[in-house]
Design a protein around this nucleic acid. Structure first.
Length: 568
DNA sequence: GCCGTTTTCGGCCCGACTGTTTTCAGTCG
């Protein structure tokens, strides 16, 4: 039973309760669903540990229901509710324009229960015959059905970020935009992005909105107003553009950055102070605007310091802000070196000196070359003699470099028993040994924990790379007792990597936060196989910021000299 | 059903756009 499936059931309960006209409960179930789906801890683990109620919005009653789902695979309460409306509400409401009310109406008038019922009815022209619906609704449903099939997955932030930046550049060239910035989950640095949210100030909102919906790569215009427009891009995501007046820009940026949970918490805080917060500003009882131009102004008016977007998930940041204990977050500029770099000596696509040039251009002052070792399943890994030759090549290269240092290293493979595929004799000669799992991901939790603890405790291992082995949207991470691994890493002084490759972002931010809490140091590593890959650094930084990391928590914010005790 | 600067009861975020409506409901974010 995955988190997403539990969340789906809770969401459906919310919809069903909504339809019965039950007040407030639907919100409670939605909030719980949100917490379950955004938690990176498997829901079974939380259930087994009796820690379900640590999720925000999960109390006694919902915890009991989640436990029932985890144990039995279904929920009696859910099935009882469904008996009144036996339709696949979750699937139907995924269709743009169809909410719970419309789904209920369609069931009662046309007997529609499933997506295929819906499609058949829409194609046959039966939907426009329903009182309250019409031809446009029917067309919208048909388009929505096609779209629902197309957009199954969210965009990786590594793809969404350049896309949004390119979009902003092109829009500014086409229309009257005074300011134009991304907001939403992209600005919060989430690992995947659903829609792109853009926020603008314009002296001519109508012309700006026109320029937006008339872009050549727009596939469909979903909404087109002076304040809000939405389009889908061909082959791309939905993009929402909001246009606000300059005095409201901070309020709008705060609002459209989210998260929803953070905003709700903030609005409650405003209400508690006799204020009202919306996307136009913070207003007092007489409806006078007391803040709105900048985000900082709004947080201050609510008695808080500015909260960085990456922390705005309603996971303790408001309480920390209030107490003045928000972390001074890691910045991209603080990263001085990259401890995970490949070359064409193994499976990289560029030479040693090409990678060095690219790293310098990216503003780094050192890198560690960590090609794969001979492990058979890693393509083109180095044999011991190759590694010795590479060490010599790096030493020779360092002689020619000023203000830059290349560290010797290797990415050793961790075998199923926790042993490494490089001899200790060789490991001792290297500046930076990183170790990682590359196969046998499906070991039992006990075996996997033992395996990683052994690797972390190896005296030569400096960094555990891509610790969970997950690939976003492709492969779930390993099952392991992270508490035990963090403890071992803190004891041995081994750092855990946050791999910055867009499909990895591993450690995930939630585990990074736990690791920091356990006293573990982290690194950001690009795992670069190409000169362009140093651009991934900012993704790793975003992920660690979401994990509440400060510069001091991150090993490669230090100079190469400090990194190498006794080194030059 | 959850939760606490409103604290164990009594509150619970707010606005834009669309379509099908003669004044607003539904959906979305």
């Amino acid at each position: 039973m995955k988190n997403a499936e539990v969340a789906r059931i809770l969401d459906e309960i919310a919809d069903l309760l909504d339809l019965q006209g039950v007040a407030f409960k639907p919100r409670a179930y939605r909030r719980a669903a949100q917490a379950v789906s955004s938690s990176t801890t498997p829901i079974e683990d939380l259930a087994a540990a009796g820690r379900l109620e640590t999720l925000p919005g999960v109390g006694d009653a919902i915890a009991g229901k989640i436990a029932e789902i985890v144990e039995t695979g279904h929920l009696t309460y859910h099935e009882e509710l469904k008996a009144a409306l036996p339709v696949d509400l979750f699937a139907l409401t995924q269709v743009e324009g169809v909410g719970p009310k419309t789904a209920k109406l369609l069931y009662e008038t046309l007997g529609i229960r499933t997506l295929s019922d819906l499609e058949e009815a829409a194609r046959a022209g039966r939907i426009e015959t329903v009182k309250g619906l019409g031809k446009k609704t029917q067309e919208r449903i048909l388009r929505g059905l096609a779209e629902t099939r197309r957009v199954e997955r969210r965009l990786l932030i590594g793809h969404a970020l350049p896309l949004a930046e390119d979009l902003c550049r092109r829009l500014k060239a086409r229309g009257p935009f005074d300011r134009l910035v991304p907001a939403g989950s992209l600005r919060r640095g989430r690992e995947t992005i659903g829609d792109l949210d853009l926020l603008a100030i314009s002296g001519d909102p109508r012309a700006a909105a026109d320029a937006f919906v008339e872009m050549p790569d727009v596939q469909e215009v979903l909404a087109h107003g002076e304040k809000k427009s939405s389009v889908t891009l061909s082959g791309g995501p939905q993009v929402d553009l909001r246009i606000v007046a300059e005095p409201s820009f901070g309020a709008a940026l705060q609002y459209f950055t989210g998260s929803k949970a953070h905003n709700i918490a903030l609005r409650k805080r405003a209400v508690a102070r006799g204020l009202k917060l919306n996307e136009y500003g913070l207003f007092d009882g007489a409806d006078r605007c007391v803040a709105g131009r900048t985000e900082t102004e709004i947080y201050q008016a609510l008695g808080l310091p500015f909260i960085p977007p990456e922390l705005r998930e309603d996971e303790g940041e408001i309480a920390a802000a209030e107490k003045g204990t928000l972390p001074d977050l890691l910045t991209h500029e603080a990263i001085r070196g990259d401890l995970h770099v490949h070359t064409d000596w193994s499976d990289g696509k560029a030479t040693l000196s090409e990678m060095v040039d690219a790293a310098r251009t990216a503003g780094l002052s050192y890198i560690a070359i960590t090609d794969h070792a001979r492990f058979a399943e890693v393509v083109g890994g180095l044999r011991p003699a190759d590694l010795e030759r590479q060490i010599e090549a790096i030493e020779a290269l360092n002689e020619t470099l000023e203000d830059f240092r290349v560290l010797t290293g290797v990415e050793a493979n961790i075998g199923p028993d926790g042993s490494l595929d490089v001899a200790d004799r060789l490991l001792r000669r290297l500046d930076v040994v990183i170790a990682a799992v590359h196969s046998q991901f499906r070991q039992s939790r006990e075996a996997m924990t033992k395996r990683l603890v052994r690797a972390v405790e190896h005296e030569a291992v400096r960094v555990l790379a891509h610790p969970t082995g997950r690939k976003i949207g492709e492969r779930a991470g390993i099952d392991a007792d992270w508490h035990a691994i963090f403890h071992a890493a803190a004891q041995s002084g081994t750092a855990l990597e946050c791999n910055a490759n867009p499909i990895r972002l591993d450690l995930p931010s939630e585990l990074a936060r736990r690791a920091i809490g356990a006293g573990v140091r982290l690194t950001v590593g690009t795992d670069a196989h190409h000169p362009d890959h140093f651009a991934f650094l900012r993704l790793g930084v975003l992920t660690l910021r979401r994990g509440w990391a400060r510069a001091d928590d991150v090993l490669n914010t230090e100079s190469a000299d400090r990194l190498m005790p006794g080194g030059t």
